[in-house]
């Protein structure tokens, strides 16, 4: 049922993923597990370029038919790009949460924050525990 969570990135307990580009920037999105829970994503509110964010602050909003959910920033930083394709095609998050469904690119201010996040197997263990 679930896709494999890629090992090239880190995960939050709020079901976001973050990929380190190695140049001080990261790309973020929501996990396959999160899109599955939301099911039909019909609207994405993207952040404005230049928006300053901190961990656990909403950086974007995704809406399904039934629900409204915040996407939290995994790190402290500044939004430098947002996936404009999601405005017309929010379903990209359902179809390809780890690829074409990326949400924003951030410039990190405190790269060490990445170390506190989960790796793929840690995230899977976390989901398994959450379901019990």
């Amino acid at each position: 049922m679930s896709k494999v969570n890629p090992t090239d990135r880190k995960y939050t307990r709020e079901h976001e993923w973050v990929i380190d580009n190695g140049d001080g920037t990261v790309v973020i999105g929501i996990t396959d597990h999160a899109q599955e829970l939301l099911t039909d994503i019909v609207f994405v509110e993207l952040p404005e370029i230049g928006k300053q964010v901190k961990p656990m602050e909403a950086v974007a909003v995704v809406e399904s038919v039934k629900s409204v959910s915040d996407v939290y920033s995994p790190v402290t930083g500044e939004v430098i790009e947002a996936n404009q394709k999601l405005e017309q095609n929010p379903e990209l998050i359902n179809q390809d949460p780890y690829g074409k469904g990326w949400i924003a690119k951030l410039k990190m201010k405190q790269p060490e924050e990445l170390q506190a996040l989960l790796d793929a197997s840690g995230y899977e263990a976390f989901i398994a525990a959450e379901q019990h």
Partner: peptide, 11 residues
């Protein structure tokens, strides 16, 4: 039951 597969599909 709120949904079996997807709200849009069921609708």
């Amino acid at each position: 039951p709120v949904q079996y597969t997807s709200v849009i599909e069921e609708h």
